[in-house]
Simulated assay, not measured.
Amino acid sequence: MQLEIRPDPAEVGRARSWARSRLAGSGIGSDDPLAETLILLVSELVTNAVVHTGRPAVLRLSLPRVVAESATVRLEVADHSDRAPVPRCVDGDQTGGRGLALVDGLADRWGWSPEGNGKRIWCELDRCEDSGERATICVGDASAYEGLAFEVV
């Protein structure tokens, strides 16, 4: 499944809506922690493509055919810029620059690779069995994120 993204900031909202509908169609509800995290990752990666390249991009979402207690969801954004994504260190007063830090903190895996005249940035979320009734997002090594704080404003 893929969505063509125009180089317009309004496309970020359209990308979130598209991803929500794909998730719902695969049986992953909007209140599922996997869906909530994936929508945030869609926002960050599509925003980066729109803001930093000023060129069209393609959003791809790979969902499991059957939603099971354990599954991996893959999100990719391909753009037409050959500039590598670079995580930045920003101070508390800056309004941007935290997108890749969020991706790094929330995704189980992420990376990028050159593709034609541009690049593909991808991330994956694992859904694993929980001891309760709902599946949750797996966290490989939670200690790797101790001391990090993310604030939603």
Rank of each mutant, 00 (worst) to 15 (best):
L41I: 07
L41P: 00
E44T: 08
T47I: 06
T47V: 05
A49W: 01
V50Y: 01
H52N: 10
H52A: 08
G54C: 05
R55E: 13
R55W: 01
R55H: 08
P56T: 14
P56L: 08
L59R: 00
L61W: 01
S62A: 13
P64Y: 09
P64V: 12
P64C: 09
V66P: 00
S70N: 13
S70C: 13
S70G: 10
A71E: 04
A71W: 02
V73L: 15
V73P: 00
L75K: 03
L75W: 02
E76H: 05
V77Q: 01
D79W: 00
H80P: 01
H80T: 11
A84I: 08
P87F: 07
R88G: 07
D91L: 08
G92N: 08
G92E: 15
G92H: 12
D93W: 02
D93H: 05
D93K: 09
T95M: 11
T95E: 14
G96Y: 07
R98D: 12
L100G: 02
L100T: 03
A101S: 13
A101R: 13
L102G: 06
L102I: 13
D104A: 15
G105M: 12
L106D: 01
L106P: 03
D108K: 03
D108Y: 04
R109P: 04
G111W: 01
S113C: 10
P114E: 13
E115W: 05
G116F: 10
G116Q: 06
G116M: 13
N117G: 14
N117C: 07
G118N: 03
K119D: 02
R120H: 01
R120F: 00
I121Q: 04
I121W: 00
W122T: 07
W122E: 05
C123R: 01
C123A: 15
E124P: 02
E124T: 15
L125D: 01
L125C: 06
D126S: 10
D126N: 09
R127M: 15
E129Y: 03
E133C: 06
E133S: 13
R134Y: 08
A135T: 13
T136F: 06
C138L: 15
G140E: 09
G140R: 15
D141G: 04
A144G: 02
A144R: 08
Y145F: 15
E146L: 14
